[in-house]
Amino acid sequence: MKAFTRLDGLVAPLDRSNVDTDAIIPKQFLKSIQRTGFGRYLFDEWRYLDHGEPGMDCAERPRNLDFPLNHPRYWQVSILLARENFGCGSSREHAVWALDEYGFRCIIAPSFADIFFTNCFKSGLLPICLPIDVVDKLFRQVAAKPGYRLRVDLPAQTVTTPGGEAFGFEVDPFRKECLLNGWDDIGLTLCHADDIRAYEARRRQEAPWLFA
C-alpha cells in the first residue's frame, strides 16, 4: 500500500450530501476484473453528458461543464471537499480505486459511510472528518479563491488553510500507523497466524458445527 504522510494539495468541492458509491463509479464499470482503469470514469454520470460504457475513450466524450472537476481551476486536484455521509451505499472498493487513480489522496467531509471509510485506508487514501461548521467554512474559502490549497499533516493530525488556520482531526492510531508506513494489513495479520490457529482449535471444541 502507498504511504501517506503529508500533502499540500489543490482542493475541489463537491457540494452535495449522501454521495453514494454508485455515483462515484457507476455499476457498468464494475464488470472489470482489473484493479485499475477506473479513474477516467470517476463520477461518470455527473462528469459527462453522454452515457459511459467500459472501454470508452473519455477524451472524445462531451463534458458537463457545471461539474467542478471539469473546471480548469480544479485540474490536478488531490483533495476532495465533500458533505455528510460521503461514500454511502454499495461496498464496491472500485469507488476508492477510481478516486485514487484520478489523483485524490485525501477526502474531507463531516461524515463518511463506514464501508467506504474502511476501504479508503486500503488504498492509502486519507478520509478526514471535520465538524460541519469547519467544512462550511472550507467550502466558502474554496469558492472564493481559485487555486485554493490545503496542507494535510498526518503525523500532526492537522489540516491547515492558506491563511494559516489549522484544524485538528482524529484518526485511529492503528490505521494511522499503517498509512504512515504503507503497511499491508494481511502481512500484519499473518504475524498472528498462531493466535488464529489457537482460536480455531478452541472454537472447534465449543462449536464444531461451524467447521463442517
Binding site: S91, R92, E93, I115, N119, K122, S123, D185, I186, T189
Partner: peptide, 13 residues
C-alpha cells in the same frame, strides 16, 4: 459487507 481488499484479507487469514 466488506470491500475487495478485505475479501482478500479474509481469504488469506
Amino acid at each position: 459487507g466488506i470491500g475487495t481488499s478485505e475479501v482478500e484479507h479474509v481469504l488469506a487469514t
